[in-house]
């Protein structure tokens, strides 16, 4: 269970541009839930993910994982149980390392990075089969530098890397937004598969309402740092995309978007 309790976050405090985004914001996410978060620009979706991951500090409030507070932990320590895939496909992999080196790095997450061999040859077959299951023909490109692959291929590898080791949470930050519609669809299906197979708790920010309705167990719509719509389970199943789109348009017009 992930709990966000009474979080306050103000940007540019004291300046003319001061923006109080979260004012005692609270949210709880059950284990194994796939939460899709939608909302217009500036609604606080990505800020929420950044607060949970520790990329930005909270002004006050608490964040708990399994009842334990993580709000004081530095970002890298929170990632021990979290994986994250970013909007930019370049963020999830090292462009100047080969795919094999990238996968080896990710495979070692949670253990020490000492003076033993960086690449474990006995794991190569496993990497090949993981890549083959993507269906993108990447299994023959293990020694190719990551930077020479396409955005979609890189994002697929980033997803494999983020979920390679045992995890509790998967954070998806508009991870299909920079891809063409066909590749986005492939990445979305892969995401769904890995979340179900590994029984992960996932939080996905997306601008694609169809993905949110289709893949999320629970839909959150955010506006100005508030949750304006929260539907899960049966209630979510009975919600049509049109209904959500209507709501979305309403808040967008209020924002002047």
């Amino acid at each position: 269970m992930l709990e966000v309790r009474d979080i306050c976050k103000t940007y540019n405090a004291g300046a003319v541009t001061e923006l109080r985004l979260f004012d005692h914001f609270s949210l709880s996410v059950d284990d194994g839930q796939f939460v899709a978060i939608v909302g217009s620009n500036g609604s606080g979706k990505t800020s929420l993910l950044n607060l949970i991951c520790g990329s930005i500090p909270a002004d006050s409030g608490d964040i708990l994982v399994g009842g334990k507070s993580i709000v004081k932990l530095p970002d890298y320590q929170r990632y021990i149980t979290m994986g994250r895939v970013y909007q930019n496909p370049a963020s999830g992999t090292c462009p100047n390392l080969t795919m094999l080196e990238n996968l080896s790095l990710a495979d070692n997450k949670g253990r020490s990075y000492g003076l033993t061999r960086g690449i474990n040859r006995r794991r190569v077959d496993f990497y090949r089969s993981e890549l083959a299951s993507l269906g993108l023909g990447l299994e023959d490109k293990l020694n190719v530098k990551m930077g020479s692959l396409s955005g979609g291929q890189r994002q697929a590898v980033a997803l494999v890397m983020a979920t390679m080791t045992p995890l509790k949470f998967l954070i998806l930050d508009e991870h299909t937004a920079a891809l063409d519609p066909k590749t986005a669809e492939i990445i979305m299906q892969l995401t769904d598969k890995v979340v179900r197979e590994k029984q992960l708790t996932a939080m996905m920010v997306t601008h694609n309402l169809r993905y949110a309705v289709e893949y999320g167990d629970r839909i959150l719509m955010m506006n100005h740092g508030h949750v304006v719509l929260d539907k899960a389970g049966e209630e979510k199943k009975n919600t049509s995309i049109d209904e959500i789109l209507g709501m979305f348009n309403k808040i967008s017009i209020e924002c002047g978007n």
């Binding site: 462009p95 100047n96 080896s104 790095l105 983020a162």
Partner: peptide, 17 residues
């Protein structure tokens, strides 16, 4: 490898905990 990753993509190193 991790050292090379820091210069290449420090974000990734952080997500590797």
């Amino acid at each position: 490898l991790l050292l090379r990753a820091v210069g290449d993509n420090s974000t990734l190193v952080t997500t590797l905990a």
